[in-house]
Every structure is written in structure tokens, then in C-alpha cells.
Nucleic acid binder design. Structure first.
Length: 605
DNA sequence: GCCGTTTTCGGCCCGACTGTTTTCAGTCG
């Protein structure tokens, strides 16, 4: 189950949406939206707070506090139930389609009775949309395109939700008596940007108590299938979880098998066959009789060692003798391979690299020495400068940049004076954290022509500037490329933030010649951000690989807008690992001395 | 509904873009 704060955030947001759809007071709706974000970003668990305590959260007043308290006490919010009864849930779900907001969702429901995304797509295809005032041909096309975008990531769960759920399930199952090992596998373990379902693997002599424990979890809504080796359930958030229980001696083979990817496994199985072995979900087997004249024959002590251990047990499934494979290392060793980190297991050359002994020494979350892109409540963040800095210090960073929005993002109402006052405040706070070097930065807006918010003399006052695209997403490819190349060429721009501006399942990437931008970044010494927000994960792993080939460097940042978001870099690091990055590629793993040098861009001035 | 260097009422993120309009509504960041 997600953190209670996240559940409450979702419910308050739903309440705000329903107020909007039903034509309620827009300011009231906005108050609930703000309260939703405030609760979601609040570091303390709301479960432990009473009405008084809840009201201490900025943006939460008496009315919201009472609703939250009602939810923690009873598991429901009466006022929300009342609104839900008036509007089918599918109407609100239509708001997830880009360019469909509350007004259009209501109009579609009221005039055509459309109450789901599927019905909406059907209505467009059968040309019914023009019957509703305000909808023309272009609207239909745009909405249909938006629906397709949603479906591409359709049914997939974002990394933060999936990770949290998987960790809770693993913790719960690990406590079941008789469970000797438990971990999650699948695409989540490989740190793919979204996850279709969650695969959990466990070992136990008797699988029954584990299967029962899974189906009895409070947030399991439906049991899809349940047998002695596999149980599948659906959570109340609609995420499918598959649990498999295997004998202890098969743990390694099973973990390899269920971690995937499919392509990686196929290649491993091919190698196994050549080595006279067979790898399947039931374990690693030595094929009886012949087939000992394959690749592993000359293959060194490790393979031989594992085979020696094979004398252990006779197989129950498969044709040959089961090879004990209690760990992944043993399985890989049987194939004369070193252990391969899950994020690399995509058959993108990792097996060949492993054979050559050239696997990269992947960057780890613990290698990060700082965060170079964060926000405070001076703009659209939730936490104060002090709170953000204190949390960063607690993470053990040695440097930390505060980069609030610049004035061209008009809604943030930034001014020179506010920025300079924040700098003063930051300098005063420097005394509090002797071990943490504080950097005063900003997140600039890259204009349609590639210009940024402030003139050089003002930019020179910052320790660090991130520059990002926040508008004009529809420029043509040449214009998008030009603006981003120009931003790289700006001697005061150190990091290009969320380069493609995509939001997973919500908005596609801008149309840009990535190779041209990567080349410009490498040439000018501008780092490219790996934005770790689970909604963005921008750049994608395959684009990072391309950028690395151009010689670009990267900054793995949280883009935190609240203190809990400062933990996001684990997802950015996962993405970086999928792109084979090492600490050499990631500037915020470097010492301050080295980073300082990188930030100079002297040659361009 | 929330909040207060404008303090218990009266404001509340503001401008651009898009597609449908012929003067604007809805959506988005």
C-alpha cells in the first residue's frame, strides 16, 4: 500500500477534480489541489496527526484537516463519496487525456453520455464529437492522439509507486514463518522506467503460507490465480503482483529467469545449451549424456565448480541433473560469466562485454555527492530553504544546489530582488552545515530562440544554472534543436534540465535532433540532466547511451519540489545504470574541486 | 477553502497557446 500521505494526496486531488467537473467554486478546488500537494510532500506521516496537527501543514485548513482525519479514522471521506455518486469515475479519468480538462469532460458526459476514455475514443472515430459545442475536427484528432499516448504506457505503473509497493510486499512476505528468501525481480529490478506488473520471488519448503499471506494483504483487491507455485493478485491500485515460490536450491536460477529481460535470458539459454546445460524457470540442469563438448568445456574453474556441485540433486522438472544454483553468481559462473547487474540485462551487448571482462563499473546511488536541481517554496516547491537544506545535509551530500525558477516562467513571480534575498539567506545558512557546500543556482527557461531569463551580468552571480524548456513544446525540429544548442553555448548554463520535457504517459518528447544537442553539450562542457522524477525520467536510457557516445557528461538530479523528493535520484541512478554510466560520466559524483572546475566553462567566455 | 508586512474579508499563479471562436473558453505550465 502506498504511503498514507500519497493516498490522501490522491483523494484530495480527486475531490478537487470533482469540484471542478461539477462546476464548483474554482478557488475552492484550487485550495484542495494545493492541500493535496502539501500533504503529498509533507515529510511526516499524516497517520500520526490529529486535526490540530494536520492544520500545521501549510495549505491545510480546518475543512481539509477534518476530511483527512475522517479518512485515517474510517477509511472514507463522506463529502468525496457524495460527489463520486454524481459523476461516473470514467468522466474524471478522461481528464487524464491531454487537452481534456474538467469542462470538456463534463460537456462530453452531459451531451453525449460519454463516461470513459474508451467511449471517448469510439465517439471520435464515429464522428460524434462535433455534436458537442466547442469540439471540432482538430480537437478530435488531438484527443485521439492523446489517448494513444496514454495507451502506449497504458496499464504501466511508475517506478516510485511500483518500488514502494514491491518493497512493502517483500517486507511482509519475508516475515512469514518458513520464508527463507524473498525479493522482487522483473522489469522493476532492471529499473525500467515503467513497470507492467510486479514479480516477487521467494523460497520456502512449504509455499502455502506465503501464497496465503499475499492474498490476505489489506490492499489486495482481487486474486486472479492461486496455486502451489504461483499466485497472482491485483492491488486496489490496479497493479498486478505475481508471486512465485521456489525451492531454496533454485533461487539463483529462478531469480535470473524472472528478472529477465526475455532477450537476455534467451541469450543465456543459448550459451547454456552450448555448455551442455539447460536454464529454465525450474532451475539449471546438466543435460544427461552428450553435449559436453560445447563452450564451457575449456571454460575454467568456475564452470567446472558449479558442475561439480551438480551431483547434488536429481531433477524433478527438466530432463537432466539439477545443478544447485543457490545464487545468481553461481548461474552466471556456470556459463563462465561474471554476475551481470540487472539494469544491464537487456541484451544490449552486456553478455559480450562480460565475456571480454569489460562490464562497466556502474554508478551507484551512494556515489552521488550532491543534487544540482531543487526547488523551494520561493517558487513552486513546498518546503522552505532551511528544510530542503537540512534534508540534503541528512542525506550526507557534500554539495547542494538550490535552483528556483527564473522570472520568464511568469506564474512563479520571480524577481531579481527575491533571488538576491534568497542568496543572502543561503549564505547565512552556510554556517549551519559546515560539511555541506551550498550552491546558489536557478532553473532558467530556454526561450523559443534559445535565450534565457537574465543578462550575463546577473547570471554571473549564480554558482550554477540549470536551463530547461518549459514552453513552446510545438516548435519544429530545426527550431527546437537551435534553441537547445544555443542554450548549451551559453557560458552561464551548466546543466540542461529535463531535455525532452516528456511526462510519462502524459506528454511526448519535443521534436529535436538529439545528436546535435548531445554534440553541442559535449563540445561546450554542458552537462545533460538525468531528471530522476518518476513522472519524467528524462533522458531515457537509450538516449543517454547516445549522448555518452558523443562524449557528453550527466547530472543525476531530483528536481525536488518537496523534501521527500530528494530521494528520487535512486530512480535516476537506475536509469543511468541502464545506460552503462560510471562515475566518470556523472558530474555530481565528482569531488567539489573537480565539479567546480567543470562549472567554469571558461573557454566560452 | 485557505490565508494574513493588505490580517477575519477579499483576494487567490498569470500568460500563452489552441481551436473554436468573430471575441472567447479551456487547458497547460
Amino acid at each position: 500500500m502506498p504511503r498514507l500521505n500519497d493516498q490522501v494526496q490522491e483523494l484530495l486531488q480527486e475531490y478537487a477534480d470533482l469540484i471542478n467537473i461539477t462546476g464548483g467554486d474554482a478557488f475552492r478546488a484550487r485550495a484542495y489541489e494545493k492541500a493535496a500537494r502539501a500533504v503529498g510532500g509533507h515529510p511526516e506521516d499524516v497517520a500520526g496527526l490529529d486535526v490540530k496537527g494536520l492544520q500545521q501543514i501549510p495549505g491545510v485548513g480546518k475543512s481539509t484537516a477534518e476530511k483527512v482525519a475522517e479518512y485515517t479514522a474510517t477509511g472514507r471521506i463522506t463529502a468525496l463519496e457524495t460527489l463520486r455518486a454524481k459523476i461516473p469515475s470514467g468522466v474524471r479519468e478522461m481528464m487524464a487525456v491531454p487537452s481534456v480538462g474538467p469542462k470538456r469532460a463534463l460537456a462530453l458526459y452531459r451531451d453525449l453520455g460519454i463516461a470513459s476514455v474508451d467511449e471517448l475514443a469510439d465517439a471520435i472515430r464515429s464522428d460524434k464529437l462535433s455534436e458537442v459545442a466547442g469540439f471540432g475536427e482538430r480537437s478530435g484528432e488531438k484527443i485521439l492522439h492523446g489517448i494513444e499516448l496514454m495507451r502506449q504506457s497504458g496499464g504501466r505503473t511508475l517506478l516510485d509507486t511500483a518500488t514502494e509497493l514491491a518493497e512493502q510486499i517483500v517486507a511482509a512476505l519475508s516475515d512469514v514463518p518458513g520464508c527463507t528468501r524473498c525479493a522482487y525481480a522483473g522489469s522493476l529490478r532492471r529499473m525500467r522506467e515503467t513497470v507492467g506488473d510486479i514479480d516477487v520471488l521467494a523460497t520456502a519448503a512449504d509455499s502455502e503460507p506465503l501464497m496465503a499471506a499475499l492474498t490476505e494483504l489489506p490492499y489486495v483487491a482481487e486474486v486472479i490465480a492461486s496455486g502451489p507455485t504461483k499466485t497472482s493478485v491485483l492491488t486496489d491500485q490496479g497493479v498486478q503482483v505475481d508471486l512465485r515460490v521456489v525451492p531454496e536450491e533454485d533461487w539463483g536460477a529462478a531469480l535470473v529467469y524472472f528478472t529477465g529481460s526475455k532477450a537476455h535470458n534467451i541469450k543465456l539459454r543459448t550459451m547454456a545449451v552450448r555448455a551442455g546445460l539447460k536454464l529454465s524457470e525450474y532451475g539449471l540442469f546438466e543435460v544427461d549424456g552428450d553435449a559436453k563438448n560445447g563452450g564451457a568445456k575449456g571454460g575454467g574453474a568456475k564452470g567446472g565448480g558449479a558442475k561439480a556441485a551438480a551431483k547434488a540433486a536429481k531433477a524433478t522438472k527438466g530432463d537432466g541433473t539439477k545443478v544447485v544454483s543457490a545464487t545468481e553468481e553461481e548461474v552466471y559462473a556456470a556459463l563462465d560469466l561474471p554476475w551481470i547487474a540487472p539494469p544491464l540485462r537487456e541484451d544490449r551487448g552486456e553478455i559480450e562485454a562480460a565475456l571480454r571482462g569489460e562490464l562497466p563499473d556502474l554508478v551507484q546511488e551512494s556515489d552521488l555527492r550532491g543534487d544540482l536541481h531543487t526547488h523551494t517554496d520561493l517558487t513552486d516547491g513546498l518546503a522552505s530553504l532551511e528544510e530542503m537544506i537540512d534534508t540534503a545535509a541528512a542525506r550526507g551530500y557534500s554539495y547542494f544546489a538550490v535552483t528556483d525558477h527564473a522570472p520568464d516562467l511568469v506564474m512563479q513571480r520571480m524577481t531579481d530582488e527575491k533571488m538576491l534575498a534568497q542568496r543572502e539567506q543561503l549564505h547565512r545558512l552556510a554556517d549551519r552545515h559546515k560539511k555541506l557546500r551550498l550552491l546558489h543556482g536557478t532553473e532558467l527557461n530556454i526561450g523559443p530562440d534559445g535565450g534565457v531569463d537574465w543578462p550575463p551580468e546577473f547570471l554571473a552571480g549564480f554558482d550554477l544554472c540549470v536551463a530547461s524548456v518549459h514552453s513552446h513544446f510545438n516548435l519544429d525540429r530545426a527550431a527546437q534543436t537551435h534553441r537547445l544548442v544555443r542554450a548549451c553555448e551559453n557560458p552561464y548554463v551548466h546543466v540542461i534540465g529535463h531535455l525532452t520535457t516528456r511526462r510519462i504517459g502524459r506528454r511526448g518528447p519535443i521534436d529535436v535532433d538529439l545528436d546535435a544537442v548531445f554534440a553541442a553539450a559535449a563540445r561546450t562542457g554542458t552537462a545533460i540532466e538525468i531528471n530522476s522524477s518518476p513522472q519524467r525520467l528524462d533522458l531515457r536510457d537509450e538516449d543517454i547511451l547516445r549522448a555518452k557516445r558523443h562524449g557528453a557528461r550527466f547530472s543525476i538530479d531530483s528536481d525536488a519540489h518537496a523534501t521527500p523528493h530528494l530521494a528520487y535520484p535512486r530512480f535516476g541512478v537506475g536509469t543511468a545504470q541502464r545506460a552503462w554510466l560510471t562515475t566518470e560520466d556523472v558530474v555530481n559524483t565528482w569531488t567539489w574541486q573537480r565539479l567546480k572546475h567543470f562549472l567554469r566553462k571558461d573557454a566560452l567566455r
